[in-house]
């Protein structure tokens, strides 16, 4: 019967308000008319985009196109840079993350982040993963130990570090450090994980491990990943957005973006004519 109900494009066309709200719930994050400025320089122009729940959304585009700036607006990380300004809305489950939360730290426990350069704290493996729990007021030692183990297992790192939990994080390889950063992000049980080029500094084997991990995590988390590597975007993502010069040129299912892009710019970038 109403087979077309499952077809997104049909529902988007509906004007009925209640079904509009229901349709919005499908999306974990909704970005509306976002502009972003570094001082007087505008970095993002009028971005509107929906990010689906429990899917991997890849952001692609040439260097300096604003994809990293964009991903950092989703957990208010840009606020740590002085002299920046933002206009527009970012809704997480319908709540405006810039208006409905007193402190940005509240939003960041729900929207975790993994950075381009692995950045473990100069602490032990255990303390790295426990950090997020401690700053969020969890003191129960047994609980912390359990969550640390679980997080390291989810990040596929447990077997490699289980006998070395007290060793400094710096004694591990770059790939292991990055998975440690992922484990650390998972420990606070976020709903969304932002990954800003998580594998760009890693060798192919470590990269493959990270990609496998993303494949595992997508069942439980909404993932947004910035990547320079188009094969990577094609491999790991369900949805792809192409940014160029601070504008969102096109976004859609990854398959369509890579096989039948609607815009000429997208096609040129994907086929390697520039970028």
């Amino acid at each position: 019967m109403y087979n077309e109900m499952s077809d997104l494009s049909v529902r988007v066309a509906k004007t009925d308000i209640s079904s509009d709200a229901a349709e919005k719930l499908q999306y974990k994050i909704i970005v509306e008319q976002l502009d972003f400025f570094y001082g007087d320089i505008q970095a993002l122009f009028d971005i509107s985009m929906n990010i689906e729940q429990n899917r991997v959304t890849a952001l692609i585009g040439p260097s300096g196109c604003g994809k990293s700036t964009f991903i950092r607006t989703l957990n208010r990380m840009n606020e740590t840079i002085p002299g920046t300004r933002m206009e527009g809305k970012v809704l997480l489950d319908g709540c405006d993350i810039y208006q409905d939360f007193d402190d940005p730290s509240q939003i960041r426990t729900r929207v975790g982040m993994v950075f381009q350069k692995s950045n473990p704290f100069p602490k032990s493996v255990f303390e790295n993963v426990a950090y997020g729990l401690r700053v969020n007021g969890i003191k129960d030692r047994n609980l912390i130990a359990e969550v640390v183990e679980e997080s390291l297992k989810r990040a596929a790192l447990w077997d490699e570090v289980k006998d070395k939990l007290d060793n400094s994080a710096f004694t591990f390889s770059g790939g292991q450090q990055q998975r440690l950063c992922i484990a650390r992000a998972l420990a606070i049980r976020p709903e969304v994980i932002l990954m800003d080029e998580p594998a760009s500094a890693l060798d192919p084997i470590s990269t493959a491990k990270i990609e496998d991990l993303i494949g595992e995590l997508r069942q439980h988390y909404t993932i947004v990943i910035v990547t320079h590597n188009m094969q990577q975007a094609a491999r790991v993502s369900d949805h792809t957005a192409f940014f160029y010069e601070g504008k969102l040129i096109e976004d859609g299912p990854t398959k369509e973006i890579f096989t039948r892009p609607k815009k000429k710019k997208t096609e040129d970038y994907i086929t390697g004519r520039f970028g």
Binding site: T80, F115, K117, N119, R134, R184, I188
Partner: peptide, 27 residues
Amino acid sequence: IPTELKEASYALGGTKLQTIWRIIIPQ
């Protein structure tokens, strides 16, 4: 002190005060 370390703390839900106390002062 690398910005990355401070950002890591913020990204895990650390407030400014917690970041200063647990990361910046020890470093």
